[in-house]
C-alpha cells in the first residue's frame, strides 16, 4: 500500500484545485436562486408580480404545457400536501356583472374570497379559460383553474380587461364565482398586487 500512498500523495500535491478558495456565501445564494427559479418557473408571490418576470413566464407557460406532468412532480410548491401525481382542477365561473363597482378594499377581499391564486393563462377555449396556478393564497391547493366566462367581464377585470394566453393573473373567487370589480385581473395591474399582499 505504500506505493499507492506515494502515488496518491504525488498526485495530491499536484492538485490544480488546491488553491481554489471556498465559495463565497453570496455566490452560493446567487447560484441557488438562479437554479431554483430557472427550473421551476413557479415564483413566489412577490416575484410573480414583477413585470420583468412576465415575459419569462409567458415563454415558460408554453414549455409548461408540454412538460406538465414532469413539472407537477418537481416544482417546489408553497402549499404542502399538494398532489404531485395528477393535476387538480378547480372550476369557477365568471359572471358578467353590470353593477357599478365600489372601490376594492383588502378587508372586503379577505372577507369574501374563499379562493385566491396567482396563475398564468395557458389556453382559452371558447368561454373556458384555463389557468396554470403558480401560487394559492387562499383555498384548497390546486394546479389548474378553469374559469367559465358566462358573461362579458371586460368592464370589471383589472388590467387589459380580459384573459389572454400567456399573461399572469391574480384571481379571487367566492363560492365558485369569480370576484371582479377590481378584485381579479392582470397581475401587473396597478394596485392589485398590493391589494393581494394586504389581504392574504
Amino acid at each position: 500500500m505504500t506505493d499507492d500512498d506515494d502515488l496518491r500523495t504525488r498526485l495530491h500535491r499536484a492538485d490544480p484545485a488546491a488553491d481554489v478558495p471556498p465559495t463565497a456565501p453570496d455566490r452560493v445564494s446567487r447560484l441557488l436562486e438562479k437554479t431554483m427559479t430557472t427550473t421551476t418557473a413557479a415564483p413566489r408571490r412577490t416575484t410573480a408580480l414583477r413585470p420583468t418576470r412576465l415575459i419569462t413566464l409567458a415563454a415558460a407557460a408554453v414549455v409548461l404545457i408540454a412538460a406538465l406532468g414532469t413539472w407537477f412532480v418537481l416544482r417546489p410548491d408553497n402549499t404542502p400536501g399538494a398532489p404531485v401525481a395528477a393535476p387538480t382542477v378547480t372550476e369557477i365561473t365568471a359572471p358578467g356583472i353590470a353593477a357599478k363597482c365600489a372601490e376594492p378594499t383588502a378587508d372586503r377581499l379577505t372577507e369574501a374570497a374563499d379562493l385566491a391564486f396567482a396563475g398564468t393563462v395557458t389556453t382559452i377555449d371558447g368561454r373556458i379559460v384555463t389557468l396554470e396556478v403558480t401560487n394559492v393564497f387562499r383555498g384548497a391547493p390546486t394546479d389548474v383553474v378553469r374559469v367559465a366566462q358566462t358573461g362579458d367581464i371586460s368592464e370589471t377585470m383589472m388590467g387589459s380587461g380580459k384573459f389572454e394566453v400567456g399573461r399572469d393573473y391574480l384571481v379571487a373567487s367566492s363560492e365558485g364565482s369569480m370576484l371582479t370589480c377590481g378584485y381579479s385581473g392582470e397581475a401587473s395591474s396597478p394596485g392589485l398586487a398590493g391589494l393581494y399582499d394586504t389581504a392574504f
Binding site: P16, A17, L31, R75, A82
Partner: peptide, 28 residues
C-alpha cells in the same frame, strides 16, 4: 418527497456540492 422538504434539503446540501463541483471542474 414533499416539495418544501425537497427545497430545504437541496438548500442544505448545496453549499457543499457547489464547493466540491467547483473544485472538480477547476481540475478538468
Amino acid at each position: 418527497m414533499n416539495p418544501d422538504d425537497r427545497r430545504q434539503r437541496f438548500e442544505a446540501v448545496a453549499p457543499t456540492v457547489i464547493d466540491a463541483v467547483r473544485r472538480f471542474l477547476a481540475r478538468r
